[in-house]
Write a protein that binds this DNA or RNA. Structure first.
Length: 543
DNA sequence: AATCATTGCCC
DNA sequence: GTACGGGCAATGATTC
């Protein structure tokens, strides 16, 4: 049991009373847990910059702190709130009126680690948890002396408060408000989860396990572990297959694109083994016996996309943004088919060709824009006609271009082997969409000169110079496109706030909703980029 | 036990 | 001679 005060007031006991019974309207909070894995809450710190408080969970004053955390009228600052909100979930704290300094850092393109951000933008020196534990010779926070933990927590909360003050006038307000309002939506979706059809899960498990066991037994019989890239490389090489080296040149490359090209049945066996193993270990075993699947959504990607992850604590939780979209083994049941509505139906919506629409807008390419003027406009078909290649190849081409792909990659992805021919197509693409091509070049040059690029709403993204010029050039083109698409989709999500309890999944440009949803009108024009929504109603399973 | 390297799923 | 952008996670190999 402990309570601590850090500040200049002569009477801490009195200050404590004032603070909890007559709280200020803006408070920074920080939670301390045993470790990242064991998120048992030890205590909570609060700060208003000049003064900081800390209370352990077993202290009688803890519930007064909870009241502050639950109070919607108090504006609560966290640094990376998704962590704290998850820790505090069982206490039903408020997650509407939240500020997040880590989110601010990401918008501004500055380091978002508290130690670094506090050092650069406030006069507070913050110690990382790792060095704190090393200094005290403890293996986790529960071993550390409570005064030390209290002090660290108070300093962290203080740094958060000061960081907020330092950044609030620097951050583009409109953008920050969008991000800020997205936070409660992410928390709601994370808490709600999506229903799993256990019967279907069982069928999938049986199917994939049967296949998996078969391929494994064949490999066992041949005396190698198909899960070991080293052994696969060795055995295939011994069977006189030619295999390239991996990028690091440390081992033999045996990835899918390499194995696919081989005639050797052993290569095909490895592919089948991997497919079944991947699905089992990523999507079936972790969801075994669960009636719902949960994830934790975050907003810490460079471009502003939302990411989905396993929070890493004891709760069953996983990435729900990488579920296989279709089964590519003959006769295999699709993984998505086990995700079902709570009621009868799901509603699926996705932002139609959002990234290419964004490219058209950012580059002001007249040809691209004219395609999208038509409500049924399809840029891939247009490219297909323009270059005289199949639509599939054109689609690959269009996407690869916004990733900065060069001739060799384009050839690999489109399956057009003739490099001279692909180079000609590439030039033709740039002639077909001349302003887009020019925009890409300007992005690269300006990005390299400035060291950063920006999205439409003003998110600043520092280019990773340490990864080399070529990589930076690609990022300079792709990041504004991806980032702008992400912020437009956030605006779409905000428009859908009224149906927040129905939203089950967000997969970048797609929402999966519970029930027969009547979508808000005007979704296509929440930003200056016109992006029509494509909606599927009355969906009984995700697949 | 922790970290690196490889692989593979999503948009 | 040649990197296609952003994510997360599992597994085996290597290092400590």
């Amino acid at each position: 049991m402990a309570r601590s005060y850090l500040g200049n007031h002569p009477n801490p006991a009195e200050r404590w009373e004032q603070f909890v019974f007559n709280p200020p309207p803006l408070i920074a909070f920080d939670t301390e847990t045993i470790s990242l894995r064991d998120r048992t809450l030890l205590g909570v710190g609060a700060s208003i910059g000049t003064e900081s408080f800390y209370v352990t969970t077993d202290d009688e004053w803890f519930h007064y702190f909870l009241r502050l955390l639950q109070d919607q009228s108090i504006d609560k600052i966290y640094h990376n709130c998704m962590f704290d909100l998850r820790v505090l979930r069982k206490y039903k704290v408020d997650y509407i009126n939240i500020e997040d300094t880590a989110v601010m850092c990401h918008i501004l393109g500055i380091p978002a680690v508290l130690e670094e951000a506090a050092l650069l933008h406030t006069d507070t020196v913050v110690e990382s948890a790792k060095s704190f534990l090393a200094r005290l010779g403890c293996k986790d926070m529960s071993q550390a002396p409570v005064e030390e933990v209290a002090h660290k927590c108070q300093i962290d909360a203080e740094a958060t408060w000061k960081l907020y003050q330092a950044l609030k006038y620097k951050v583009p307000q409109g953008y920050y408000q969008v991000e800020r309002q997205i936070i409660p939506m992410l928390e709601t979706i994370s808490q709600k989860g999506i229903k799993i059809d256990q019967q279907r899960h069982k069928e999938l498990s049986e199917w994939y396990t049967r296949e998996y066991s078969y391929y494994k037994s064949l490999a066992d019989g041949m005396g190698f572990n198909p899960g070991s890239t080293q052994q696969v490389g060795y055995i295939l090489a011994r069977r006189k297959n030619f295999l390239p080296l991996t990028r690091s040149r440390k081992s033999i490359s045996t990835d899918k694109s390499v194995l696919k090209k081989l005639q050797d049945p052993v290569a095909q066996l490895v592919l089948l083994y991997r497919q079944t193993q991947t699905i089992r270990s990523n999507f079936l075993i972790p969801l075994n016996g669960l009636s719902r699947a949960y994830t934790t959504l975050h907003m810490d990607a460079i471009t502003g996309r939302i990411s989905s992850t396993d929070a890493g604590d004891s709760e069953p939780d996983r990435n729900l943004q990488n579920i296989p979209r279709k089964a590519d083994m003959p006769g295999a049941p699709p993984v998505r088919s086990m995700f079902v509505p709570d009621g009868k139906y799901l509603t699926k919506m996705d932002a139609n060709q959002i990234e290419l629409r964004v490219l058209a807008h950012l580059s002001n390419d007249s040809h691209m824009k004219s395609v999208y003027l038509d409500p049924d406009g399809d840029i891939h078909s247009e490219t297909s006609r323009g270059l005289g290649i199949p639509r599939d190849a054109a689609k690959t081409f269009n996407f690869a271009m916004i990733y900065g792909a060069e001739v060799y990659t384009l050839s690999d992805r489109t399956g057009i082997a003739d490099l001279k021919q692909v180079a000609a197509y590439r030039r033709l693409w740039m002639e077909t969409y001349p302003e887009a091509a020019r925009w890409m070049i300007i992005q690269q040059e300006e990005g390299l000169r400035n060291g950063y690029v920006e999205t439409l709403m003003g998110r600043k993204m520092m280019l990773p110079v340490e990864l080399g010029e070529k990589h930076c050039r690609n990022c300079a083109v792709n990041w504004p496109v991806q980032g702008t698409a992400a912020e437009i989709f956030k605006l779409v999500m905000l428009e859908c706030r009224s149906m927040i309890d129905a939203i089950r999944l967000q997969i970048h440009d797609e929402l999966l909703d519970e029930g027969d949803q009547e979508l808000p009108s005007g979704l296509a024009d929440v930003s200056s980029v016109h992006v029509p929504m494509q909606v599927d109603y009355k969906v009984e399973r995700w697949y």
